Simulated scan of single mutants.
Amino acid sequence: MTKRARCPQCNRAIVACFCDTITQIENELSVIILQHTSEVKHAKGTTKIVELSLNNIEVFVGEDFTDNSELKEKLATKKSLLLYPQENAISPSDLASQINENSDIKLSDYQLVAIDGSWKKAFKILQLNPFLSQIPAIGIDAINESDYRIRKSSRSDSLSTLEAVHSVLTTVEGDKFEGLLTSFKAMVDFQIKSMPKDVQGRY
């Protein structure tokens, strides 16, 4: 049986390729994504859109990163902020205010660390990598309803990795990241249109 042709850039089947929707965006706040292995080839995943769109991003794939020297070195180069909901998390607007009020602080001194996976898988990555708990947390200023209609979550405050990263970057750098949502919507719409007619109505 012949395998379906895949796009060499986004690694999706040609019919599902979203590369023509990608907009290149320069981000001053660099991004690191720790992607659970199960998400790499997931048809509904959003990290590839973020990776192809941002010019200042690195993606590390795995579950246990304790022996990943490349990641450890990367984390040591800047002040890292872990994108995860915690009570003591700084808000993106607070970070922006600190930078605006202090000329000695630059946004480029920081890097955003996001975990790509379900809540269960993200929690497992945190448990397997205790060093992540030492990174100060950053949250999201306001949780709007996710447009990630094609994947269900047990939590009402769930956002896709793309939506969460977009929210933080938009708060601290401005409205130049709308291209992320354009590609995201195109991917979501394609997935829904590919479903049987009786299933589409649920989304």
Rank of each mutant, 00 (worst) to 15 (best):
D67C: 11
T37P: 06
C7P: 03
F60G: 02
Y148V: 06
L34F: 05
L162E: 09
D104T: 15
I143V: 12
V188C: 00
V172M: 06
N68E: 06
A137D: 00
V15T: 12
T182Q: 11
R4M: 12
K78W: 11
S38G: 02
P92T: 07
M195Q: 14
I57F: 01
S146Q: 04
D94H: 04
L112D: 09
K72R: 12
R151Y: 00
G139E: 10
L132P: 15
Q111Y: 09
D20R: 08
I192Y: 07
L107R: 07
K120Q: 15
I192V: 14
K106N: 06
S103T: 10
P8L: 02
L95T: 05
E178I: 15
I32S: 14
L107W: 02
I14A: 04
K78N: 14
D67E: 14
D104F: 15
I138Y: 09
K152R: 10
I25S: 02
D104R: 15
L54T: 00
L107V: 05
R12T: 04
N102I: 15
S80L: 00
A137H: 10
E178L: 14
R155N: 06
I99W: 06
A43P: 12
I105D: 01
E87C: 04
A142H: 12
N55G: 11
T171C: 03
S153D: 08
K193T: 05
V31M: 02
S53V: 00
K124D: 14
V168G: 09
L81T: 12
D175S: 13
R149W: 03
S108T: 15
H36V: 09
E145N: 09
I135T: 13
Q134F: 06
C10V: 10
Y148W: 09
S93T: 11
S146P: 05
K44D: 11
A114M: 04
F60V: 04
R12N: 12
V40N: 05
I99P: 08
L52K: 08
G62W: 14
A164N: 05
P8E: 07
L112T: 06
I135L: 14
T171W: 00
E163L: 08
D157Y: 05
V199Y: 03
T46Y: 01
P130R: 02
T23A: 12
D20C: 03
L34Y: 08
L159H: 13
F60I: 06
N27V: 09
L29K: 09
D109M: 07
S154Q: 15
L71A: 01
A76I: 01
L81Y: 11
N68A: 08
L181W: 02
K106Y: 04
E87I: 11
Q200V: 08
G201A: 02
A186E: 10
T170R: 11
V168Q: 11
P8S: 08
S38D: 08
L75Q: 00
K48V: 07
P196H: 11
L181E: 09
T21F: 07
K176D: 12
I22W: 07
N129F: 01
F123T: 15
L34K: 13
E58N: 13
H42D: 13
D189V: 11
G174D: 10
A142Y: 13
E28H: 11
H36Q: 04
